[in-house]
Amino acid sequence: MTQSVEPKVRELIALVLEKKFPAGQAITRAKEPQWNSLKHVELIFALEDAFGVRFSEQDMVDMDSIAAIVAVLDRRHAA
């Protein structure tokens, strides 16, 4: 699952933050200044739409990097 969702997640982060991220590069909220709280919500909206899921408030807090987002999506799909 991780392999299949990661490129789409990367693409959506790039679209929302309007910045390109090379494949394989770690992306974290702490290191991306434009990833503020409003962009975070926008990203949540885009991810929910693209993957057909609805995140919990705790998920939203946890999803602070591409790795964390992929992990949450994996957990959702496994459930």
Binding site: L15, E42, F45, A46, D49, A50
Partner: peptide, 8 residues
């Protein structure tokens, strides 16, 4: 409308 489609 779908956000992920519109952004692309």
């Amino acid at each position: 409308p779908r956000r992920s489609e519109l952004l692309a």
